[in-house]
Structure formats: structure tokens, C-alpha cells
């Protein structure tokens, strides 16, 4: 359970950090730990308190841009291998709205903001991914899995994002008691996480 949470939190934090456009992901360093990933302290800006730091596991540094400003190439960590395009500020603003709504427990509003953002960037795999994790939080498991799959349909070649989507799918299967399917999804995630 903790692990599930930590995955969701990780995913949320990444999405917060990574407000990249189109098919190109945000500057994210090492979303690699296969299990028990935790969040480091953000370099600047506020990570919502709802994303509290899970107790165990190795820390991962997630560079956060200044809140409300697009992540730019300058913010990409050296050697991340991913050159993010400047994010659309409108999408960033909506992502901030979504984060705020989630902090306030308004998952439905968070989802609505994400859908607005998708109206602007329909092929942004990160947005689909965020929507998947929001639905997961809302307890809508089948939608969480379907949206994670939808995210994956735009995610190529971002293996980290694909892995994060497979983790959501695995979590959904596990919650539904589908042990084999959960294991298979996890294997896919692990395979994608190998650098």
C-alpha cells in the first residue's frame, strides 16, 4: 500500500515538475527505482504537502521549475538524455490548478483542469498520465488503467513515462486481485526502467 502510494506520489511530483509539451517529457532525473521510490526535497517551489515523503526507499531528486513557469531546457539535469521542449504556459497553469485542487481533495476539479489541458495538448502523454493517476486517487480503477494505456499510446519513446503507466496498470490489477496480470504489468514496467 505504501508502495502504491509512493508510486502515485512520485508520478504526481514528476507531473508537477514535468510540464513538457507534446511527446517530449519533462526534465526528470531517475524515475528508475523499481520499488519504494521516494521523493527528495524539491530544489525550489512548493511540492504540495499532500505528497508527503514516504518513509522508506531511496531518494530521487526531482528538479522543480519555478512554480507557474514552464520547464525549460535550461532546467534539464545534465545527462538526463531528454531534451524537453518549452512547455506551454497555459498547460502549466492548468497543471498547477490541478495540483491545487488535488491538495484540497477536489479530485473531480483536478480531473476537469487536466481535461482542459488536454483540450490544448491532446497528445501530451504526461497529461493523460496525470489524469490516470487522478482517477486512481478517485478510486476509479478501470479508468485509471485505461487512461494509463492511453498515455502509453502517446508516450513513445519515453520509457520512464511508459514504466510509470505500467505501474499504474499493475496497481489497478493488484487492487482488483488479478495477481498474474499485476505481475506481468510490473515486469513490463521493470523492463522499461532498465536504462
Amino acid at each position: 500500500m505504501n508502495r502504491q502510494k509512493s508510486i502515485i506520489f512520485t508520478v504526481m511530483a514528476i507531473s508537477l515538475a514535468g510540464c513538457a509539451t507534446g511527446r517530449q517529457p519533462a526534465p526528470v532525473e531517475e524515475l528508475g527505482a523499481p520499488a519504494g521510490t521516494t521523493l527528495g526535497t524539491p530544489s525550489q517551489g512548493g511540492v504540495p504537502s499532500a505528497m508527503g515523503v514516504p518513509p522508506t526507499g531511496e531518494a530521487v531528486t526531482i528538479p522543480l521549475g519555478e512554480p507557474g513557469l514552464p520547464a525549460t531546457a535550461a532546467g534539464a539535469p545534465p545527462g538526463s538524455g531528454v531534451g524537453p521542449a518549452p512547455a506551454n504556459p497555459a498547460v502549466v497553469a492548468l497543471l498547477n490548478d490541478a495540483n491545487l485542487a488535488m491538495q484540497n481533495g477536489r479530485n473531480d476539479r483536478a480531473a476537469a483542469s487536466l481535461e482542459r489541458a488536454l483540450g490544448i495538448e491532446p497528445r501530451n502523454a504526461w497529461l493523460w498520465h496525470r489524469l490516470a493517476s487522478t482517477r486512481f486517487q478517485q478510486g476509479d480503477l478501470s479508468q485509471a488503467a485505461a487512461l494509463a494505456a492511453k498515455s502509453n499510446s502517446f508516450a513513445s519513446p519515453d520509457r520512464k513515462l511508459q514504466a510509470a503507466n505500467w505501474r499504474i496498470i499493475a496497481d489497478v490489477h493488484r487492487r482488483q486481485g488479478e495477481v498474474d496480470a499485476a505481475r506481468s504489468a510490473e515486469e513490463k514496467a521493470a523492463g522499461l526502467e532498465i536504462p
Binding site: D108, L118, Q143, A146, L147, A149, K150, S153
Partner: peptide, 15 residues
């Protein structure tokens, strides 16, 4: 707000 009609997807054909 009374009702929101959210975006729902089902993967019904393999990609």
C-alpha cells in the same frame, strides 16, 4: 456543480 461528464476511455481495440 450537479453533474460532470468526465472523459472516459476504454481500450477496445489493440493499438
Amino acid at each position: 456543480p450537479l453533474t460532470r461528464y468526465p472523459l472516459n476511455v476504454t481500450q477496445s481495440v489493440a493499438p
